[in-house]
Design a protein around this nucleic acid. Structure first.
Lengths: 144, 144
DNA sequence: CACATTGTTGCAAACAGTCGCAATAACCTA
DNA sequence: TAGGTTATTGCGACTGTTTGCAACAATGTG
């Protein structure tokens, strides 16, 4: 699936923001690169087309688009952020720290935990994407 | 509680590493600053005493001390790492993104989730400290 | 269609974190 | 206690990220 620039532009304008060529380019880049892109990958991609497009603009656009819920951000266990189009269900990841393999985790896998936190601690956890580091089966057998 | 430099030094030497004045200073700083210190806070603190002590040395020492399990590292939801002496049980945190309040979470609160991941996905999650962002009761009532 | 408003961009400088390498110094051994 | 081994430090350069500010340009209005 792709992104609908017109609909996104309309949504932005409705909220008092603007659609710019830079933001379009950045959205295109995220879409074409597929899921989980780093800011630097986006910079590379858009600068291949428009070299003048500034690095800072990319960082600001990514934050902005996350706030507008047009894209989502995931915090990897190494402290880096990756971005992807906001479509479908929120989900989380298990990332193997040995081989880098990554398993998608349905949100349901964590919702029980979320429910518990709200009940026991009166605390409502943000349902942002989360990644957990660990070892997959193959890598456990290799090193153990 | 404090840290026992002699015991730590012995542990390091036993494993073929060395105790240096820099590492002592860094451990002191973590101890005196209390829990959850950022690398930059440690740099400030140790450079107040020994200005020549290099930034890179602090980062390397923190990583090293984590590997040696002398301190632990927590990834905050904003992608920053904070450090504290490794004492007591591993635990996690709920951090309110509005007021900054932080609740300690016993490891048991997540162990059920960990068990599930191993059973369903054959994936063993690292038991590192994790922090979740969200809204505490007070802040929910204030803004909702 | 021209204008005014103000959200956005590009720039440059600051900041945070990382890396390779030569010099240093902690530790072990005799 | 002297000496050798090698873990560790400091330096300098570089990458990734953020911020203030002046110039620019996307929209809504007349």
């Amino acid at each position: 699936m792709s992104h609908d620039l017109d609909a996104i532009a309309a949504q932005l304008r409705r909220n008092g923001f603007r659609m710019t060529p830079q933001r379009q380019l950045i959205l295109d880049a995220i879409c074409e690169l597929g899921g989980h892109v780093t800011p630097e990958e986006v910079v590379q991609r858009v600068q291949a087309i428009t070299p003048a497009l500034n690095r800072a603009t990319v960082y600001r656009a990514l934050n902005f688009l996350v706030e507008q819920r047009i894209i989502t951000v995931t915090l990897l266990p190494d402290g880096k952020f990756v971005y992807e189009l906001a479509e479908g269900e929120p989900h989380h990841h298990l990332v193997c720290r040995a081989c880098g393999a990554s398993v998608q985790l349905p949100h349901a896998a964590l919702s029980e935990f979320y429910r518990l936190m709200e009940k026991q601690y009166d605390f409502r956890v943000d349902m942002t994407h989360i990644s957990f580091f660990g070892l997959c089966k193959n890598c456990r057998e290799g090193s153990a």
